[in-house]
Design a protein around this nucleic acid. Structure first.
Lengths: 106, 106
DNA sequence: TGCATACTTGGTCAAATTACCAAATGATTG
DNA sequence: CAATCATTTGGTAATTTGACCAAGTATGCA
């Protein structure tokens, strides 16, 4: 494997890693319905404002979302709609997979 | 959000988390070409046998792969072909996204 | 039966992640 | 300009992750 392949592999893993947290995954799901400001997440997620902001930063660095400041608010937008497709596929797998579901859905 | 939704969200996040490591992602890519025994990965990945085995366990618990013992070898198989589709989508995004690429492909 | 081969499991330790608090920045309002 | 609202940044502590080594289990062969 070339070092370029290595880099690409690492980059892709970073994207998955960014999605590998319940709060961030929730944010992605919400963003798939339309843009949202940080404040709207802060309420909904029930975590500290700073925590929410940091999660959004992770998603942004992974290239999954874009942000735009308008007035004093910052709006985030989903950049990668194909995530949702995969999310549906995973959901189907989880539901069809007794072994993993028993472990994961607990 | 109901606690059932919470559980599902958590389960999905676990799946992404499992994919969020270069070695495990590599394994998934290789498995998309066909089944493989642990030993074959051990050589290729260049990590300790036990490390390889643990990575495969993570993928298995996430429901992404199946394993089958035949003789003294254990063969792993990809359970979720749709991962590859998403992988391609991510790859496209990474290549089209200067900002993230600069960070991630370094 | 005894020994090699192919894995898995348990332990340990360093590094990464995540959450919160406090403080800093930036835009808006009085 | 001072005060306030929305958000980010920095610091710290608790938890999780990942890598290796050593030891354990299971299969196959002499």
């Amino acid at each position: 494997m070339t070092s370029k392949d290595q880099a690409l592999l690492h980059a892709k893993a970073q994207v998955f890693k960014a999605l590998g947290h319940p709060t961030r995954l929730f944010m992605i799901q919400e963003l798939s319905k339309g843009e949202r400001c940080v404040c709207s997440f802060a309420e909904q997620v029930g975590a500290d404002f700073s925590t929410v902001s940091k999660h959004l930063t992770v998603l942004k660095h992974a290239g999954l979302v874009d942000d735009e400041k308008r007035g004093q608010q910052v709006f985030y937008r989903l950049r990668v709609p194909c995530v949702m497709q995969f999310m549906n596929c995973i959901e189907a797998v989880l539901k069809s997979n007794a072994a993993a579901s028993a472990q994961l859905l607990r």
